[in-house]
């Protein structure tokens, strides 16, 4: 075996051991070392040179970045996740013909979808979705994310929350927790518009709090305009959209003048 390759795989073994221990400081140190070392291999993206060890090097490179992604999830660092994922992506797309597929591929793609959902980047979510093959769409990890997005768009928030119990992969839990927060804000926004008032216990249930105090704190922080009276939460909403009494004269004058100008050009 190539000495350089051997060295990298040794460091990688230490990294994996540290990751298993959840020793994040050692992990980040080793990871930055690994990334520098990987740059020496010419067979890795973006060069894809056909060196004799190409398959080994590519597989190793992919493993390193897969673990980097998992590390970033464990450290709950979304920016690092995004960076590592984009470094990993060429291995899945451009190196598809060169190395055998990885068993981690679908969970990681699913994680990425979930991240986009949590960050409410729906356009990118769909762009990523288009890249998946029909067989990948059947994978439970991907399906999980796809169904979540659907329920989310429909407004069936109960389904989003119950999906937490059925996560297909342990790393999904972190994002599901983040998603729960997003969902709560969504529900609060919807309830504000949909209900005139709710009893405190009902509000607690709809907003998914375990105690009344949590609810009251949440209202104080996020929605100070809501009013709490006689055990009810009143959503203050000015019900405007009343028929307009006055004529928006300035706007009308502007419009009419522009019509006149255009007509003059035609005639």
């Amino acid at each position: 075996m190539d000495p350089k390759l051997l060295e990298v795989s040794q460091v990688f073994d230490r990294f994996k051991a540290a990751l298993a221990r959840n020793d994040f400081d050692t992990c980040t140190n080793l990871l930055s070392q690994l990334k520098v070392m990987l740059t020496e291999f010419k067979s890795l993206p973006p060069l894809f040179e056909k060196t004799p060890n190409a398959v080994h090097e590519l597989t190793l490179g992919r493993d390193v970045y897969e673990h980097a992604v998992i590390l970033s999830v464990k450290m709950e660092d979304q920016d690092a996740f995004e960076r590592d994922f984009f470094q990993l992506k060429p291995y899945y797309t451009d190196a598809r013909e060169l190395i055998p597929p990885s068993p981690q591929e679908c969970p990681i793609l699913g994680l990425n979808l979930l991240r986009l959902l949590v960050q409410n980047r729906i356009a990118e979510f769909h762009t990523e979705l288009e890249l998946l093959s029909p067989s990948a769409m059947e994978n439970p990890c991907i399906q999980h994310a796809v169904e979540l997005e659907q329920s989310f768009m429909e407004g069936a928030y109960n389904r989003v929350l119950s999906a937490r119990q059925s996560v297909p992969h342990e790393t999904f839990v972190y994002f599901m927790d983040l998603l729960a927060k997003t969902v709560r804000d969504e529900i609060a926004g919807c309830s504000e518009k949909a209900y005139d008032y709710l009893s405190i216990s009902d509000a607690r249930q709809t907003l998914l709090f375990s105690s009344d105090n949590q609810l009251l704190e949440y209202i104080k922080e996020e929605h100070p305009e809501w009013e709490i009276k006689n055990g009810f939460v009143f959503f203050q909403k000015a019900k405007e959209s009343a028929p307009s009494k006055e004529i928006p004269s300035l706007q009308l004058i502007n419009q009419t003048l522009s019509y006149a100008r255009e007509l003059e050009r035609i005639v």
């Binding site: 407004g155 069936a156 109960n158 926004g189 919807c190 309830s191 949909a194 209900y195 709710l198 009893s199």
Partner: peptide
């Protein structure tokens, strides 16, 4: 779904917020 009424409630709430329908909900 397992809990159609709760689903319907949140779906209607979202539709109201997005302005698709003009209605209010009475939870009680």
């Amino acid at each position: 779904s397992s809990n159609p009424v709760a689903d319907a409630e949140s779906i209607v709430a979202k539709a109201i917020r997005d302005g698709a329908i003009d209605a209010t909900l009475d939870h009680a």
